[in-house]
């Protein structure tokens, strides 16, 4: 990584800033007072964040989003890793069919299950609960596919050496495969987390109680709180919006390479 031509770097920086300007300007706006914005002036304040977190419960929504996305990620990765291991290392009756059925879900529009999943959860009394938010999106076919490909690339001789030492197949998974597949597992964990963090239609359908709103539902509601009024409190809305994107942006800045590698490997290979 070298800085060859400062002019090119400056040009790239400008293009990037212009592209991201709507988002950047919205963050800037979240630190302004509404009065100043509508009067065309500038007045710095942190009050929008105070109101979003306190009066409008965004601290609660933040917790819900972290909790739900975290559990979906842990459960999703555990299930995907176990299944990927089985599909990569064992031949068993029906394995091709079952793997095919898993991959086929990538092509199935998720909205066909919207009404049935709502009914399923209603029947077992899990609407308006964390479990209702967490369970339906937890299985990740993409992560399973991706991890299977990755595990197939790990030499079998390593498994066999471990079996020789008396390891069980579960020990081979936890002591040999998982440590070696850590980068792939991390990529997929991120992928699942971000998807879940940003998901909207399912939480919108499954949750009626405002205690359980995720950030996305809370933000959409806040924006529409006064649809009849002609002046929306944009700085407040932008503070809430910033709260809902910041964790993902920070995570992204830390692990961009992993994420991009994961996504491109899945697509190109």
């Amino acid at each position: 990584m070298k800085l060859e031509n400062p002019l090119r770097s400056a040009a790239a920086l400008i293009v990037g800033l212009v592209f991201l300007s709507p988002a950047l300007y919205s963050i800037w706006l979240s630190f302004q007072t509404a009065d100043a914005y509508y009067a065309g002036g500038l007045e710095f304040t942190l009050d929008n964040y105070g109101r979003a977190v306190g009066q409008y419960h965004f601290a609660r929504y933040l917790f819900n989003s972290v909790f739900v996305s975290g559990i979906v990620t842990l459960g999703g990765i555990a299930m995907a890793t176990l299944a990927a291991y089985a599909f990569a290392r064992f031949t068993f009756r029906g394995s091709d069919l079952l793997f095919g059925l898993t991959i086929a879900t990538l092509m199935i529009p998720s909205h066909i299950s919207l009404i049935p999943n709502y009914l399923t959860l209603a029947r077992v009394g899990l609407l308006d609960s964390y479990a209702g938010l967490i369970l339906p999106p937890m299985a990740s076919a993409f992560a399973t596919f991706f991890l299977r490909q990755y595990i197939r690339g790990i030499p079998r001789s390593l498994d066999e050496a471990a079996y020789m030492d008396g390891a069980s197949s579960l020990q081979v998974l936890t002591r040999v495969i998982v440590p070696l597949a850590r980068p792939a597992i991390l990529s997929m964990a991120l992928y699942i987390f971000i998807n879940e963090w940003n998901s909207y239609i399912w939480p919108l359908v499954a949750i009626g109680k405002s205690d359980l709103y995720t950030l996305q539902v809370g933000l959409a509601r806040l924006y529409k709180i006064n649809p009849g009024e002609d002046l929306i409190d944009w700085p407040l809305v932008m503070a809430a919006s910033t709260i809902s994107i910041l964790p993902v942006l920070l995570g992204f800045a830390l692990v961009e390479r992993h994420l991009v590698r994961g996504i491109t490997m899945g697509a190109v290979k």
Binding site: A23, A220, Y223, I245
Partner: peptide, 14 residues
């Protein structure tokens, strides 16, 4: 990787 709701809200303002 940013939430679609946030993007939609920001562009509603734009």
């Amino acid at each position: 990787v940013t939430s679609t709701v946030s993007i939609a809200v920001v562009f509603s303002w734009v």
